[in-house]
Amino acid sequence: MALNSQGRTILEVTHVAKSYGRQIVLKDVTFQIRSAEIVGIVGENGSGKSTLLKIIMGLLAPTAGEVTVRGSIGYCPQELQIFETLTVSENFYYFAEAYSQHQTIGYDKLKEVKESLLVRFRFQQYENTLAALLSEGTKRKLNLSIALLHSPDIFILDEPYSGFDWETYLHFWEYTKELRSQGKSILIVSHLVYDSSKIDKLFELTGGVLKCV
């Protein structure tokens, strides 16, 4: 594992706990992600991965602890969160508008990144196709590409490559390598990580407890 400990801390999760009544979902979860670091969190279904991600993203409030993010986030949810009755291009445009609200990235840059993502993940021929008419795999590419559109400091990817064919899977890892070389951090959350050699730090979430693997 190629651990880069020189970079600044981008994401800091400190003593985070979450419970619903008596049901404890997360217990004292603490970890950090530095710049140019690829971190993986694995865990079985129901281990608390999604809850942890929701807390990191601000979709859920933790019962205890805190999350500090120093930089912009690109988030790819596990579920397809795209507008089905808009075209691929319109989906990009809508999210580009969202990204442009708080960031200095301009439309020209966003357009350039969009073009490169369409080519990289090989779905440029569907640019003007309604998302509803795309195959499951292509929808997944769009779901992921939206998170990558604004060149954020950290990418938080929930089961990012489920539904990918082998070639796209390879392109995905190639891309993460490039992002890492640009100083970007990546957090991959999955029930299984096939290529642990590509990851700097790997954690396992079991019964709400996070352990370094």
């Binding site: 979709l59 988030y75 949810p77 969160q81 969202a98 990204y99």
Partner: peptide, 15 residues
């Protein structure tokens, strides 16, 4: 219909 996608838009910066 689009509550989840709208929320993603908000996460990405939309007010």
């Amino acid at each position: 219909k689009h509550a989840d996608v709208d929320r993603r838009l908000v996460l990405c910066g939309y007010r």
